[in-house]
Design a protein around this nucleic acid. Structure first.
Lengths: 212, 212
DNA sequence: AGGCGAACATACTCTTCGGTATGTCGTCAA
DNA sequence: TTGACGACATACCGAAGAGTATGTTCGCCT
């Protein structure tokens, strides 16, 4: 009655998959507020009924997309960050590379997710507001993973003397921005790899201690 | 009747100033679609009538903010880019520094402007749609200014071998992202300077040719 | 001294959209 | 076979909000 597992994480139930995909596309196109439930339904050749059969409210659909997107990010980065066999710079490079890749291949989800963390309010419902704060918390955790690697690199003398937590801002800003301009229609696997390479180089280069 | 100078650039008429300021604040808080004309009016202690006296439609207010914001960017960067007395790396550093500063001091305008360039459509009115494309064109011009400086630096051997146009993406992405997380309430002049320093270092470092 | 228009406020209209209530169809267990 | 339930579609309601039509006030020009 109060807090059921609405907007569950991980494997979205079979019926919800299509809805999330359609909604992510629609939200990406017109933004959250300007997107109609009918838009979402039309996107998948269905009607409102289908959406409301699986979700209580528009905000819940939105939150499910965002949570899924954030989880994909975390799942992808954690194993790299924890790989003790690699030096900090290499790990950071790979983390940036992977993050960049997700911004392109999972563009609609990631773009919606990025928009979510810059929202302060999401309607009146306190449950939804709380869910939004949970997402913010995921974002903070995510930033901390990067900050830890930066700190390692700093202590190892390979990165400049920076406030690691603050250093994640330009880093993730550059990467997240990809979701805003990259057109998922264009570009094959190779061009995406090249792009991710460029980004990773740029980022590690930006943190690396200047020669001498 | 067709194309009057709605959404004029440069010095916003005296009566429009307050409206733009209030609207920028409101749009920053809740986004374009979710912001009511009444919200804007309330923000400045007035009513709808005041807004509609100066603007034909909500989209026109929005476009005026965006155009103003973009113009501020261009006006600030152009003299630096054209300063032949400085080497490319120094010029790029100062451009980044200045851009970062605007993202903080002019946060509301810049944040709204950033959101605009990621919008593809803005209602049905063709005049507004065209105005939006004009803004996109300003953005392209702006990116080109950075690209030119990067090219100079590349030819001079101080920057890596990159596609200059593409290199502006991570660069401006990192900078633009500031508008999304920076809280204009917090921070004095000095902390802003420090932050801009960090960003400029990061960016120039990211492009600089690796040692040896 | 009077009227005219700029600068708003107020009252109203009309559409759009989130959410709900209800109907319909197929499937599967008893 | 039937009836119960999941998986939707359809019809409907109410609120919100963009834009408009109509005041109202106040300076300024003649």
């Amino acid at each position: 009655m109060t807090a059921d597992d609405e907007t569950t994480a991980r494997p979205p139930a079979p019926g919800r998959r299509d809805i999330l995909e359609a909604a992510a596309t629609a939200f990406t196109r017109n933004g959250y507020a300007a997107t109609t439930i009918d838009d979402i339904a039309r996107e998948m050749g269905a009607t409102k009924g289908r959406v409301y059969h699986y979700y209580r409210a528009k905000a819940d659909v939105f939150l499910d997309i965002v949570t899924t997107g954030m989880q994909e990010l975390i799942d992808g980065i954690e194993p790299i960050a924890g790989n003790a066999g690699l030096d900090p710079a290499s790990r950071l490079w790979r983390m940036a590379h992977h993050h960049a890749g997700l911004m392109m291949t999972r563009n609609s989800f990631q773009r919606v997710a990025m928009r979510a963390v810059e929202m302060r309010r999401l309607g009146e419902a306190p449950a939804q507001q709380q869910a939004l704060e949970t997402v913010i918390a995921m974002r903070d955790r995510y930033e901390q993973i990067f900050a830890d690697v930066i700190d390692e690199g700093r202590k190892a003398g390979v990165f400049r003397e920076v406030d690691s937590r603050l250093a994640t801002k330009p880093l993730l800003g550059a990467l997240n921005w990809i979701s805003l301009w990259y057109d998922p229609q264009r570009g094959d696997y190779n061009t995406r790899q090249r792009l991710a390479d460029e980004y990773a180089d740029f980022i590690v280069g930006g943190l690396r201690r200047s020669p001498r």
